Amino acid sequence: MNVTLSRSGDVAVISLNRPEAMNALNAEMIDRIGTLIDEAAASSPRALLFVGAGGKAFCAGADIRELLERGAGAHRDAARSGQCTFAKLDRLPFPSLAVIQGVALGGGLELAMACTYRIAVAGARFGLPEIKLGLIPGYGGTQRLPALIGKARAIEMIASGRLVETDEAAQIGLIHQVVEAGDSIDLGVRFLDRLGEPFPAAMRMARTAVEKALSVSLEEGLSLEADLFVAATQTTDATEGMRAFLEKRKPAFTGR
């Protein structure tokens, strides 16, 4: 299988396993990723990791040979399929993390940007080089990149198609952390551990509030925040978290 789902303890792991093509995405892989995201969600892990096999690439983007064979209608269907698949990550009740070794280009970077967190091994490179093929990003890159690094930097990256090194990626907010080389799954689990898992049910609400802040007015955003705050107070995790604070102990969150 070019995409597989496994577990590392209570963390679900989706592996892009096409190293001979630098884990480039074709239509079959996009469909498979969507299916495996759903399967991972059904198993209620504390987080979902994305890793790339081979060490040279997280994912080098779309399969160009496949692109050449499509007509206009098929291109639109493929773009919408990729967008819908990656958007599933926004709706997960737990966080997702892309662990990047090598390159994350085009659709690979778009997948990584759809994750809650991104970490990268020193020496990794990032870019949306579609413009060099006479194309533009089609799996959400033009929408997610400005939200992460700002409009000015995003249009420069997309219009030039240039690759960004790890230090710059961390500086502009494209990735959360640069890490030393190692096994991708281990690196991901260690990063999650430092965040203080398990995550409470309020994690999904926090992500929803932050994401909506970029597309609604301040008044609408504040109203949504208030609604989500109230919803968070009604979770079992909120009761546990507040009691644990008063009792001076670590909370035992269950995601409910």
Rank of each mutant, 00 (worst) to 15 (best):
Q101Y: 07
A78Y: 15
P93R: 10
R153Y: 13
I30T: 13
L145R: 02
A181R: 12
I64K: 13
K248M: 07
L49D: 00
G173P: 00
I37W: 00
G71I: 15
R91N: 06
G182Q: 08
C84L: 10
F191N: 11
L163E: 08
S184N: 06
R162Y: 02
N17G: 03
F126R: 00
N23V: 05
G182C: 05
A238I: 07
V210H: 09
G107A: 08
G34P: 01
D227S: 12
R32D: 10
F229A: 08
Y139Q: 03
D38S: 11
A74L: 10
R7Q: 14
L36I: 09
G188L: 13
K212D: 13
T4L: 12
I64L: 05
N23S: 02
M1Q: 06
P137A: 08
G52I: 15
A244P: 11
L214M: 06
G9R: 13
K212N: 14
G138Y: 10
T85Y: 11
A159S: 07
E156C: 05
R32K: 15
R65K: 12
G255W: 08
D193T: 15
D77C: 11
I158T: 01
V178S: 02
A201Y: 02
D183S: 10
E39S: 06
V178K: 09
F58A: 07
G123D: 12
D31R: 12
L16A: 03
L218G: 04
A122R: 15
L89I: 13
G55Y: 15
P95H: 03
E168P: 02
A47V: 05
G196L: 06
S8F: 10
R46E: 03
S96I: 10
S44I: 13
G106A: 09
L5Y: 05
G61K: 01
A87M: 05
G73I: 15
A62G: 07
H176P: 00
M22P: 00
A72W: 06
F50Y: 07
T116M: 11
I185T: 15
